[in-house]
């Protein structure tokens, strides 16, 4: 429950009364809230790189909540969207959940649940962002490898010893050792185990 300053809750709700009260409620637990009366201003202001979540009213003039949610799911799949529905919009909310929404709430809200889910969504977003970032870092490291070093990395992930590696690549064992060293260096891995973990995180499979 210690929100970082960078955290944001994006509230998109056309009804000002509800919007303001939501903000009031969210701020009561220290969340930073950005509120918008419609989809368009929200999309203009959105910073998807900040950890956060979107509270979205389904019934809105212009671009409705569902439409916006689908748009977000397409463009910012990591950003969690919590839908807020009036009575009777439950089937819509179910459709939204199937389409990837994080959760939905009926007005009026059970504040406890809503706040917990909102914070959970923010945490998830933060983790996802971090993961994406780390994956992006590993990928950058992999990108720095030469083609020969990538071959060596692949064999290292298979657990092939230096001699086998040299034989497979038709190079001398000494040259192979140099490549191995360069790979470890470029991948910023202290050990083989760490290297394997990094590669797994990046989606590279051994073998």
């Amino acid at each position: 429950m210690s929100p970082a300053n960078s955290d944001r809750v994006w509230v998109v709700e056309d009804d000002e009364r509800v919007r303001r009260s939501l903000t009031w409620l969210l701020e009561s637990v220290g969340l930073a809230v950005h509120e918008f009366p419609g989809a368009e201003p929200f999309l203009e202001a959105l910073d998807p790189t900040r950890p956060g979540c979107v509270l979205l009213d389904i019934r809105m003039p212009g671009m409705g909540g569902l439409e916006l949610q689908q748009l977000l799911a397409r463009d910012h799949p990591l950003l969690p969207v919590i839908l807020i529905t009036g009575h009777g919009d439950v089937p819509m909310a179910v459709r939204a959940l199937k389409a990837g929404a994080y959760d939905f709430f009926e007005k009026p809200f059970n504040d406890q649940e809503l706040l917990e889910r909102a914070q959970a969504a923010i945490q998830q977003h933060r983790a996802a962002l971090a993961e994406a970032a780390s994956r992006a870092g590993i990928e950058q490291r992999i990108a720095r490898l030469t083609p020969r070093e990538r071959d060596v990395l692949a064999l290292m992930l298979e657990g092939a010893p230096g001699k086998v590696m040299a034989a497979r690549l038709h190079i001398s064992p000494r040259t192979a050792d140099v490549h191995r060293h360069n790979v470890m260096e470029k991948m910023e891995a202290a050990s083989l185990a760490e290297l394997i973990q990094l590669c797994l995180a990046a989606g590279l499979k051994p073998g």
């Binding site: 009804d15 009364r17 509800v18 303001r20 009260s21 939501l22 009031w24 409620l25 701020e27 009561s28 637990v29 019934r59 009036g86 009575h87 009777g88 007005k107 009026p108 809200f109 504040d111």
Partner: peptide, 23 residues
């Protein structure tokens, strides 16, 4: 449905404010 929506919106706001106050 219309009536419910019209009443529900302010009720939701009221509940939110109350809960916010409590917190």
């Amino acid at each position: 449905a219309g009536l419910a929506h019209e009443l529900n919106q302010p009720l939701a706001a009221i509940v939110n404010y109350a809960n916010g106050c409590r917190r």
